[in-house]
Write a protein that binds this DNA or RNA. Sequence first.
DNA 1: TTGACATATTCCTAAATAGGAATATATATT
DNA 2: AATATATATTCCTATTTAGGAATATGTCAA
Lengths: 125, 125
Amino acid sequence: MVRRTHRADVFSAIAEPRRREVIAVLADGEAHAVNEIVFRMKMAQPAVSKHLGALRKAGVVTVVKRGQHRMYRLNGEGLRPVHEWVKVFERYWTHQVDEIKRRAERKALERMSRVDAGPNKKKEE
Amino acid sequence: MVRRTHRADVFSAIAEPRRREVIAVLADGEAHAVNEIVFRMKMAQPAVSKHLGALRKAGVVTVVKRGQHRMYRLNGEGLRPVHEWVKVFERYWTHQVDEIKRRAERKALERMSRVDAGPNKKKEE
DNA sequence: TTGACATATTCCTAAATAGGAATATATATT
DNA sequence: AATATATATTCCTATTTAGGAATATGTCAA
């Protein structure tokens, strides 16, 4: 199998819910010590350190040593690729009726008059 | 271990690069048959079907049967949570010097005058 | 019905990964 | 030096997962 690794990818970094929690803690733009994050997240210290490491590799946070502490700070720019990627689809939910929307509606009508979207009560989980 | 599953999460769905490729193919808002995606992505059909299944569970695509084909269409709204989440950080890279930025700059100066951000040439990978 | 085609599913395996426990490392304090 | 504190790392394991191969399912066409 090939499975070219995408560990350091920002998209993978933010896929993990606990890491989004870490980001939420750092969202104020201030530098925070690991212990503070540990306390706020009620999570074991090694786990937090690992998540911070992953976020750092992905370029989402930066570290600075300060005495015996390591101060982590959000690097918002690291999230920019995600924003750039997803904002393209913004027009799907804004209410302006643009070409995408008109096309979808037209197709929906076609589908209705064609009837082939049957019941389909499979395991939907 | 707890590890509460987040498979059906949109963030996890788009973390996989091939799935973002699938989304790119569907980005025109039109319905596409699986085989077309297979052809465009140069990827094995079962793999594509699995990715489509994952995207469907995450609510990012919809399916409609049409004869022997299954037509997949992007459901842009499924990506909305990602956009809502990430847009909060947009101010980090826009050039307006807001409070976040001033704070970061102030802190940076403090750090410089404190000197404790030493060399630190560890394995950075 | 038979066969061609489109798609999904199952089984398998190698790799990734979160988190726990224990330990290592670094720094501060006495 | 000895100890406490802060953080990282290593080892372990259970779980997830991408993709390949084979197969099953569903639908159309002759």
